[in-house]
Design a protein around this nucleic acid. Structure first.
Lengths: 339, 339
DNA sequence: GAATTTCTGAGGTACGTAAATCAGAAATCT
DNA sequence: AGATTTCTGATTTACGTACCTCAGAAATTC
């Protein structure tokens, strides 16, 4: 039989109320008595029944998600997943609010973060922009005792409790490994299309990509990075221009979003380059199928959202997380393993 | 406020006991009254609070896992993950038993499955062997009302409720896609090393691999399949023999376990072939790092076990599962994205 | 219309924990 | 010593559901 608070009370020779005070760190217990109770707890191997505790408290976990109002498929899908979690909220005892902010706008994000401090939820998750102001705002959240999880794009040294997203350096390295092998050692020019160097995930992908190309595939020549602001139209024009300047581009690594533009630009070419992109969406899926894109690196937005919620719950309860379960993996999709 | 049984009773104008009878399908309610109660339930949008219900019932989910006593790293790791779940059982209200059976032994598996029917757990998971006898035994489990999940290797048409494992045809196709591109179109011989054609996962991987090689890379020549029984020593000798007969083997797809032997055999070669293997273990990880293996396709045993438990719980409670969450993905590891 | 069977309501206890109240004990201060 | 303050114990209610008993009402049978 699992030990209960009643067992502890009996063994320690105290009342239920005292056990409750010790368990919940409430004042009003002598040191000696506290010691006796704690000894009983450890000899019995008592663990609090969270379900019963939450029932008694009538607890619901109030979480706030701050999401950029980007209109690329990935961010739309991410918001969709959060809404899916909201739909399950009654069963999961959560109460999730979404705050939308303009994309790539540090000031707006800071403003939203500070609003979160005011509303004092049991936890918050947000897609980080890597600036000192945002970092400071995240620290204020943390200082207010609110567990913080960064989503998709990380913000180190900000005191955030957890990062629910992929290792973007590894993603860039993987893209380079595939690109190098797919181009099989020949001398070639490679274009890199990014969204913005303001977000850490894009910078890190580029960093990993460049490192492996430089180290393992010195015959590849990386052209200056194109910035497409994760916007299909901008991406298309940026690429068209690159093709005009370098008709012999043999590989393209698209490390941001807005791949619809990339796909249109590539499909105008007679000689198709090796293309590696991020995020499996309707358009990248179709492009994989028809051979316009050779590989897609993907992060599963649903996993990220569910993981963020699990971690926020655990942090709110002061519980450990299963690290292996919360590691978000880099999915590699070829046309052969599309789900 | 979330509606409770009390609200239903009030709205329907009946007592708590009657609501309880309707909710739990107990007899003693007139059809008309039952209808009134059900209407109240749906208009209120009542959902049973599972945590409270389980608390009241004092419920623990008794699950049985049948695992092959294989001594390759993957199966050892799988068993380890189940033991990890057992360690968390008090928090998760589970009571998990492990039954070990000799590997590749259908009769022993059938025997174990029938023993499970006797002990009547709330759910069972097992690594399937694809024979009619096992299928029949699985059907007996199902017929006894016990939710059944196949683990790692599937058993279609057996009435199992769920399969917690990867799409092995897709895995084989992916291996072929990578192999073809890594060999970049040159004419070459490819060896395939399997464990046993008795388990469905190995057969399916071969099927997928052969299909894509035949369809997209006709210049590759697949040699007759070697069977290594997932045993390092047998695998090594089988490969050594293959090298003796075909010194010009340019690619190896190892679709089973026992890769320590494969690695030893490959490391004796001057000209290293492209090697694609399954399951990330200490030895395949080291081989990836030093270039002996080019890519590893992996299934995350921890995810499979946790998913199996989640699904068994849901089935035991008659609840739907989040399909996307339970899809086990094929991890592709290059040396660039090792975790 | 009486006897039976079938339904329904009322009420209670239980699960394991949280949290509140109140009273008595012990320690501290005046 | 008396008054205060601080600790501690006992007791109770509550969370939302399950499940039990008992009694009375309604429907059915004879």
């Amino acid at each position: 039989m699992k030990p209960t608070v009643h067992d502890i009370a009996k063994i320690a020779g105290v009342s239920l109320a005292t056990v409750d005070r010790v368990l919940n760190g409430r004042p009003g217990v002598r040191e000696i008595t506290r010691g006796r109770v704690e000894e009983a707890i450890s000899t019995l191997g008592y663990v609090r029944d969270l379900a019963a505790a939450n029932l008694a408290k009538g607890r619901t976990y109030a979480f706030t998600f701050i999401l950029p109002a980007n209109d690329n498929s990935f961010m739309i899908g991410l918001a969709e997943e959060v809404r899916g979690a909201i739909a399950r909220s009654s069963a999961e005892r959560t109460d999730i609010r979404i705050i939308e902010v303009p994309p790539f706008d540090p000031a707006a994000l800071v403003c939203a973060l500070d609003a979160v401090v005011e509303s004092r939820p049991a936890g918050a998750a947000f897609v980080a922009i890597d600036t000192p102001e945002v970092r400071a705002a995240a620290k204020r959240l943390q200082a207010a005792g609110i567990p913080v999880v960064t989503l998709v794009s990380d913000l180190p040294d900000s005191g955030r409790d957890h990062y629910a997203g992929i290792d973007n350096i590894a993603a860039g390295r993987t893209a380079a490994g595939l690109m190098g092998r797919f181009l099989s050692g020949r001398k070639a020019k490679v274009a890199v299309l990014a969204g913005s160097m303001l977000v850490r995930d894009h910078r890190e992908r580029l960093e990993g990509f460049s490192a492996v190309v430089g180290g393992s595939f010195p015959d590849l020549d990386i052209l200056p990075v194109l910035e497409g602001r994760d916007d299909p139209t901008l991406a298309e024009t940026a690429l068209a221009e690159a093709f005009a300047n370098h008709p012999d581009i043999a590989g393209i690594y698209s490390l941001g979003a807005g791949n619809r533009g990339l796909i249109r630009a590539v499909q105008t070419r007679r000689e198709r380059p090796v293309v590696i992109a991020h995020e499996l969406t309707a358009s990248t899926r179709a492009a994989l199928m028809d051979g316009t894109i050779d590989a897609v690196l993907n992060q599963d937005a649903g996993h990220e959202v569910r993981s963020a919620i699990r971690v926020l719950k655990a942090k709110a309860d002061g519980l450990p997380v299963i690290a292996a379960q919360e590691r978000i993996r880099i999915d590699i999709f070829l046309k052969d393993n599309l789900p």
